[in-house]
């Protein structure tokens, strides 16, 4: 079922909802809910899928998404938090911003769109979390 969600989100992200990074939110979800190993695996799987849809250097997205999932998993182990809309939104927003910030540092590719992208992706994250978990 998760594979189906990944494919649906990937198709939507590259066609209709271009200004959201729902796949990254899914990776962060996997790390937060299931731990660092699940986050790493989910990140690797989604990273490979994103590589297919992207023109970036191959392997680059795989490393980035895996690291995001792993980091989210490590945070979930170290930080005690109550699961609600606000924490889901906060972790998603911080995760997306950190992802693109490091992406900018490594590639020099900055676009002001990432601020609105992080906010909008984070807004959808609680809904996405509940849909995928169910």
């Amino acid at each position: 079922m998760v594979i189906v969600w990944i494919i649906i989100l990937a198709l939507l992200q590259v066609t209709v909802v271009r200004d959201l990074n729902l796949l990254l939110v899914l990776v962060i979800l996997a790390g937060l809910r299931k731990g660092p190993e699940a986050g790493l695996l989910m990140g690797a799987l989604i990273g490979m899928l994103v590589s297919i849809f992207s023109s970036s250097n191959p392997g680059f997205n795989l490393v980035f998404y895996s690291a995001s999932g792993l980091l989210a998993g490590l945070v979930s182990l170290q930080v005690y938090y109550k699961r609600n809309f606000y924490t889901d939104f906060l972790f998603s927003y911080c995760g997306v911003m950190l992802f693109y910030f490091i992406y900018f540092i490594l590639t020099g590719r900055f676009s002001s769109i990432i601020f609105s992208m992080a906010f909008c992706s984070a807004i959808f994250s609680p809904v996405l979390f509940r849909l995928v978990e169910d």
Binding site: A10, Q13, V14, T15, R18, D19, L20, N21, L23, V50, F53, S54, S55, S56, N61, Y103, R109, S111, I113, I114, M117
Partner: peptide, 14 residues
């Protein structure tokens, strides 16, 4: 045009 860059930066198309 059936798809765009997956990272949302919009500089490639399919």
């Amino acid at each position: 045009v059936i798809a765009r860059e997956a990272l949302g930066l919009g500089d490639t198309i399919v």
